[in-house]
């Protein structure tokens, strides 16, 4: 398993692309489930960047950060999906533009 020689920029550019996609989804979608998915994509993109950096130096640290990101994503999804259920119950919709009770 050795010999993958590609420019770092390409990997990081890919991570950036994925991140931007997630960001765009977050801003674009009104359904909270899609927003959560976008968040997953963004986290995943960041994780990719860390793993790539770890790969460049041949160190384990990148993967460890990936692990931490993974646990953050798991916790976030667990709580986030619980919230989704509550929002559906309270507002009878998943449209975040409708759930605007925090308006000042």
């Amino acid at each position: 398993m050795s010999g993958l020689q590609i420019p770092m920029e390409h990997v990081l550019a890919l991570a950036g692309l994925l991140f931007s996609c997630g960001l765009m989804g977050l801003m674009l979608r009104r359904n909270i489930i899609f927003m959560l998915m976008s968040l997953e994509v963004m986290l995943n993109a960041v994780a990719l960047a860390f793993v790539a950096a770890g790969a460049q130096w041949g160190q384990a640290d990148g993967q460890i950060i990936f692990l931490l990101i993974l646990s953050v994503a798991a916790a976030e999804v667990a709580v986030g999906l619980g919230l989704v259920l509550q929002i559906q119950r309270r507002f009878k919709t998943l449209d975040m533009d409708q759930a605007r009770r925090l308006r000042g």
Binding site: L26, M35, M96, L102
Partner: peptide
Amino acid sequence: LCALQTGQLRWYATSMV
């Protein structure tokens, strides 16, 4: 300033971006 606090999640996300 209250007008900025729309309660809309997407608006917040967009301003953060």
